[in-house]
Amino acid sequence: TEYKLVVVGAGGVGKSALTIQLIQNHFVDEYDPTIEDSYRKQVVIDGETCLLDILDTAGQEEYSAMRDQYMRTGEGFLCVFAINNTKSFEDIHQYREQIKRVKDSDDVPMVLVGNKCDLAARTVESRQAQDLARSYGIPYIETSAKTRQGVEDAFYTLVREIRQH
């Protein structure tokens, strides 16, 4: 089974770092803004072998026109913010609204991801993020692309959301 996953969120929150940590098991430290990259990885989730087709997208506003296209083809979405960047957390709402509009559905598989949880300088409390996820009816997972904490959990949870859909 193949799953088309799309990673969305503001610029600099760590979308590529999360994806590369999942696929290649290493942490990319330097920031190089993405336009669009796709990665494929075969994994076993709950005993089922599946192929993850992951689209890593641009957070930069100037590429926002490309969003409709990949939102149409994606089956599930990782909505990523950084726990030390309140603005990126506030941006999640717009991504969710755009996904709902493009998919013409209120019920699209999504996982809210709070990345950079290895950093002490948190400005978005776990509780705020949990409340937001609960209001959307989606899971919330904290990750660190640096330490790998929660990385597999985030992507695998999204696959489970798609399966249950």
Score class of each variant (00 low, 15 high):
residue 1 T to N: 01
residue 3 Y to P: 12
residue 3 Y to V: 02
residue 4 K to E: 01
residue 4 K to V: 07
residue 6 V to I: 06
residue 7 V to E: 04
residue 7 V to M: 10
residue 8 V to F: 13
residue 8 V to I: 07
residue 9 G to T: 01
residue 10 A to V: 05
residue 10 A to F: 06
residue 11 G to S: 15
residue 13 V to R: 00
residue 13 V to D: 08
residue 13 V to H: 14
residue 14 G to E: 00
residue 15 K to T: 03
residue 17 A to L: 01
residue 17 A to V: 12
residue 17 A to K: 12
residue 17 A to D: 03
residue 18 L to Y: 03
residue 18 L to Q: 03
residue 19 T to R: 02
residue 19 T to Q: 13
residue 20 I to A: 00
residue 21 Q to W: 15
residue 21 Q to V: 08
residue 21 Q to L: 12
residue 21 Q to F: 13
residue 22 L to G: 15
residue 22 L to E: 15
residue 23 I to M: 06
residue 23 I to G: 15
residue 24 Q to M: 02
residue 25 N to S: 05
residue 27 F to Q: 07
residue 28 V to H: 03
residue 30 E to W: 03
residue 30 E to F: 05
residue 30 E to K: 12
residue 31 Y to F: 04
residue 31 Y to N: 13
residue 32 D to K: 02
residue 32 D to F: 10
residue 32 D to H: 08
residue 34 T to R: 00
residue 35 I to A: 07
residue 35 I to S: 05
residue 35 I to F: 13
residue 35 I to K: 01
residue 36 E to C: 03
residue 38 S to P: 00
residue 38 S to G: 11
residue 40 R to M: 01
residue 41 K to N: 14
residue 42 Q to E: 00
residue 44 V to R: 04
residue 44 V to L: 04
residue 45 I to P: 09
residue 46 D to Y: 04
residue 46 D to V: 10
residue 46 D to E: 07
residue 47 G to V: 04
residue 48 E to R: 05
residue 50 C to Y: 04
residue 51 L to I: 00
residue 52 L to M: 02
residue 52 L to T: 13
residue 53 D to Y: 09
residue 53 D to E: 09
residue 53 D to H: 00
residue 53 D to G: 05
residue 53 D to P: 05
residue 55 L to F: 07
residue 56 D to F: 01
residue 56 D to H: 04
residue 56 D to N: 01
residue 56 D to Q: 04
residue 58 A to R: 15
residue 58 A to D: 11
residue 58 A to Y: 13
residue 59 G to Y: 07
residue 60 Q to A: 15
residue 60 Q to T: 15
residue 60 Q to C: 15
residue 63 Y to F: 08
residue 64 S to T: 07
residue 65 A to V: 08
residue 67 R to C: 14
residue 68 D to P: 03
residue 69 Q to P: 06
residue 69 Q to T: 06
residue 69 Q to A: 07
residue 70 Y to C: 09
residue 72 R to P: 08
residue 74 G to R: 04
residue 74 G to K: 03
residue 74 G to L: 11
residue 75 E to M: 10
residue 75 E to H: 05
residue 75 E to C: 09
residue 76 G to A: 11
residue 76 G to C: 12
residue 77 F to T: 01
residue 77 F to P: 03
residue 77 F to R: 01
residue 78 L to S: 04
residue 79 C to P: 02
residue 79 C to W: 03
residue 80 V to A: 05
residue 80 V to R: 01
residue 81 F to G: 05
residue 81 F to Y: 02
residue 81 F to N: 02
residue 81 F to E: 02
residue 82 A to Y: 01
residue 82 A to Q: 12
residue 82 A to P: 03
residue 83 I to E: 07
residue 85 N to W: 09
residue 85 N to P: 02
residue 85 N to C: 08
residue 86 T to E: 12
residue 86 T to W: 04
residue 86 T to A: 10
residue 86 T to C: 01
residue 87 K to H: 02
residue 88 S to F: 05
residue 90 E to V: 07
residue 91 D to K: 15
residue 91 D to V: 09
residue 91 D to N: 10
residue 93 H to G: 11
residue 93 H to R: 10
residue 94 Q to A: 10
residue 94 Q to I: 02
residue 95 Y to I: 10
residue 96 R to Y: 00
residue 97 E to Q: 08
residue 97 E to M: 05
residue 97 E to Y: 05
residue 98 Q to S: 09
residue 98 Q to E: 02
residue 99 I to C: 07
residue 102 V to P: 01
residue 102 V to E: 03
residue 102 V to Y: 08
residue 103 K to V: 04
residue 103 K to L: 09
residue 104 D to N: 05
residue 105 S to Q: 00
residue 109 P to Q: 04
residue 109 P to E: 03
residue 112 L to D: 11
residue 112 L to T: 08
residue 112 L to A: 07
residue 113 V to L: 12
residue 113 V to T: 06
residue 113 V to Y: 03
residue 113 V to K: 07
residue 113 V to W: 09
residue 114 G to Q: 13
residue 115 N to W: 05
residue 116 K to N: 15
residue 116 K to S: 15
residue 116 K to C: 15
residue 117 C to H: 06
residue 117 C to F: 08
residue 120 A to L: 12
residue 122 R to D: 14
residue 122 R to A: 12
residue 123 T to K: 06
residue 125 E to Q: 12
residue 125 E to A: 08
residue 127 R to K: 13
residue 128 Q to L: 12
residue 129 A to R: 09
residue 129 A to Y: 10
residue 130 Q to Y: 10
residue 131 D to K: 14
residue 132 L to G: 09
residue 132 L to S: 11
residue 133 A to V: 08
residue 134 R to S: 11
residue 134 R to H: 11
residue 135 S to E: 06
residue 137 G to I: 13
residue 137 G to S: 14
residue 138 I to N: 05
residue 138 I to S: 06
residue 139 P to Q: 14
residue 139 P to M: 09
residue 140 Y to K: 03
residue 141 I to P: 08
residue 142 E to L: 12
residue 142 E to T: 13
residue 143 T to P: 13
residue 143 T to N: 14
residue 144 S to L: 14
residue 145 A to W: 08
residue 149 Q to H: 10
residue 150 G to K: 11
residue 150 G to R: 09
residue 151 V to D: 14
residue 151 V to Q: 15
residue 151 V to Y: 15
residue 152 E to S: 10
residue 153 D to H: 08
residue 154 A to W: 08
residue 155 F to V: 15
residue 156 Y to E: 15
residue 157 T to H: 11
residue 157 T to L: 14
residue 157 T to P: 07
residue 158 L to W: 13
residue 159 V to W: 12
residue 161 E to I: 07
residue 162 I to V: 09
residue 163 R to S: 08
residue 164 Q to D: 06
residue 164 Q to K: 06
